[in-house]
Amino acid sequence: MHGGIRHAGEYMCFSIYDVTVPVMLQGLAVMDDYLDHAQKLERSNCLDPGSVLTAKLAPGMLTFGEQFAVNCNKVELHLTKLMNRGWPTPRIVAMIYPALRGRLLETRGFLQTIQPVELMSAQTNTYQLTPSVARGWFGGNDYIRHVVLADFFFHIAVANAILRHLGAAVGKKDHLGHLTPYGSGDYS
Rank of each mutant, 00 (worst) to 15 (best):
H146Q: 10
A38H: 05
I5S: 14
R85I: 02
F138Q: 08
A69W: 05
E76Y: 01
M24K: 02
K40N: 07
K173W: 06
A58M: 10
V70I: 12
W87S: 15
P49Y: 12
P98F: 07
L163P: 14
M83V: 03
I92W: 01
D142I: 06
V117A: 15
V19F: 08
T63V: 09
R135W: 04
T89E: 13
Q115I: 09
T63P: 03
E106N: 07
H146D: 14
D174S: 09
L53W: 05
A161P: 00
T54N: 09
Y11R: 09
Y127D: 07
A150R: 11
S44D: 14
G185Y: 15
V147I: 12
T54W: 09
M61S: 10
K40Y: 03
M120W: 09
L176A: 09
Y11P: 01
L111Q: 00
A55C: 11
A69H: 04
I5V: 15
I5Q: 15
Q26C: 02
N71P: 02
I16F: 04
Y34G: 00
L163M: 10
A150G: 03
V170E: 10
I162G: 03
V70P: 00
G177W: 12
H7C: 11
W87I: 14
V23H: 04
Q115G: 10
L100G: 05
Y97T: 08
E106H: 03
F68A: 03
G9P: 08
N71E: 01
M83C: 07
T80W: 00
I162A: 04
N73H: 04
R85S: 02
K56W: 11
E118L: 13
